[in-house]
Design a protein around this nucleic acid. Structure first.
Length: 374
RNA sequence: GGGUCAAUGGCAGAGUGGUCAAAUGCAUCUGGCUGUAAACCAGACGACUUCGGUCUACGGCGGUUCGAAUCCGUCUUGGCCCA
């Protein structure tokens, strides 16, 4: 199967389509995070109406609840959550970082894999590269990610180097398990999922290049940018993103994991990345931040094209206009800023729900604009 | 009419001689959130300020004291009990 069909080549970027077994994805695209097999607060219909097609689920969260065996038994996570679009499963690699590195009490990393203490009930779990792949096959997702070893950005170069080496070793083990699962399940080039590796290396360009090179040798369907991609001031490490994109095979999809703000996404696109996922639209929506198009902005590549408002701010108390006049989403078509502020203040779930919906519409529209760009 | 208890910042409610511009919770205001331990977290919340302080505040008034939200007297208001 030809995974990536090249359509446009401009500068050093290539844009095209990714062929998954559940359908074709035109790049660039954004996937909302349905970490626990649900985009928080939104129904299947709402997501479809916004124009969502691919989404991201999480291996770590789903192996804890409801469990990989159960999910495999019911025919996979697609069936369980009733979603027919392509699903990408994150490996749990990020949880290695966000749980263990941020709080050593929650687990331990060894060469064999990562021990986790469940944040749900304290029980112990062990995730190996092989197991991460096995679970993702049990989930039945269409794009899988290798177990990787991200590190906090400020650790020593030495530690980043160690993380790169481990990430490469684990990636090789994942690939091996992936091939074995495909064989066992009699999957063809047309029916098998895609496997993505993750480039680590922190803020060191040479480590990123080295990591990309080693992963390329093993060979994957796509490559991700892992670890933190913004510096201490919250600015995108653009040079690193560019360098890393250049170090990845030109005909492979490039997945900027966990990115990002609308501005970050545009910059990453411009740096050569074409797949994105992030909690920002939904989490910040739940917390009251709304993305608004700047009416006079026409070139998303060259100017500030959006603003954010905090809908809970007092200044919206009597504002009967929609969140965004130019938006076609259900929230903007039906409710006012004052009403949504009211919903947030009294704790009605409809508030966070509508805010998430609107923000996802914003992200979807942003991706449409990027797809038309050139 | 007699007795008794109470009155604290937007609300609830601690504090009962100095460490009190006053705990805590709620409410309010403002931030933050980047492969979701996140419907979460943080800061502010009497006024003024040259940011060192200054002033006004724990029902009213008066007192005791170096010093009072805290002790005493009295008034006002409210709860409960007895006539």
């Amino acid at each position: 199967m030809k995974i990536f069909s090249k359509e446009i080549t401009a500068k050093n970027l290539r844009r095209g389509k990714i062929h998954t077994r559940k359908g074709v994805l035109k790049t660039p695209f954004f996937m909302p995070d349905a970490t626990r097999a649900s985009v928080r607060g939104l129904t299947r219909n709402e997501l479809e109406n916004v124009g969502i097609y691919p989404m991201v689920v999480n291996t770590y969260h789903l192996m804890l609840q409801p469990g990989a065996l159960f999910l495999e038994g019911v025919g996979g996570v697609h069936t369980f959550m009733n979603w027919s679009g392509p699903l990408l499963s994150d490996s749990g690699g990020y949880q290695v970082y966000s749980l263990i590195h941020k709080n050593p009490k929650l687990g331990k990393i060894t060469e064999k894999g990562a021990y986790f203490r469940s944040v749900i009930d304290g029980s112990k779990h062990f995730l190996t590269p092989q197991k991460a792949i096995q679970i993702q096959f049990a989930l039945g997702t269409d794009m899988m990610v290798v177990l990787d070893d991200p590190r906090p950005p400020l650790v020593s170069r030495n530690e980043h180097q160690g993380a790169v080496e481990r990430t490469v070793r684990w990636a090789a083990q994942c690939k091996e398990e992936f091939l074995s699962q495909c064989k066992k399940r009699q999957l063809t080039e047309q029916t098998r999922p895609l496997l993505f590796a993750v480039v680590q290396g922190g803020p060191h360009e040479d480590l990123r290049r080295e990591c990309a090179k080693e992963l390329t040798k093993i060979g994957f369907d796509g490559y991700g940018f892992g670890g933190r991609h913004i510096d201490e001031e919250g600015k995108l490490m653009r040079k690193i993103m560019e360098e890393t994109a250049q170090a990845i095979p030109e005909d492979a999809p490039r997945f900027a994991l966990g990115i990002g703000t609308p501005k970050d996404i545009v910059e990453c696109y411009d740096s050569g990345w074409d797949m994105f996922d992030c909690v920002i639209p939904t989490r910040e929506g739940r917390h009251g931040r709304i993305f608004i198009w700047e009416p006079d902005a026409h070139d998303i590549m060259r100017q500030d094209f959006y603003n954010t408002i905090n809908i809970t701010n007092k200044k919206f108390e009597t504002d009967l206009t929609p969140l965004d006049r130019s938006c076609e989403c259900y929230a903007c078509k039906n409710y006012s800023r004052a009403y949504l502020r009211h919903l947030f203040r009294v704790g009605e779930p409809l508030g966070p729900q509508m805010a998430s919906l609107h923000n996802l519409q914003f992200y979807t529209n942003l991706m449409h604009k990027l797809q038309k760009y050139e």
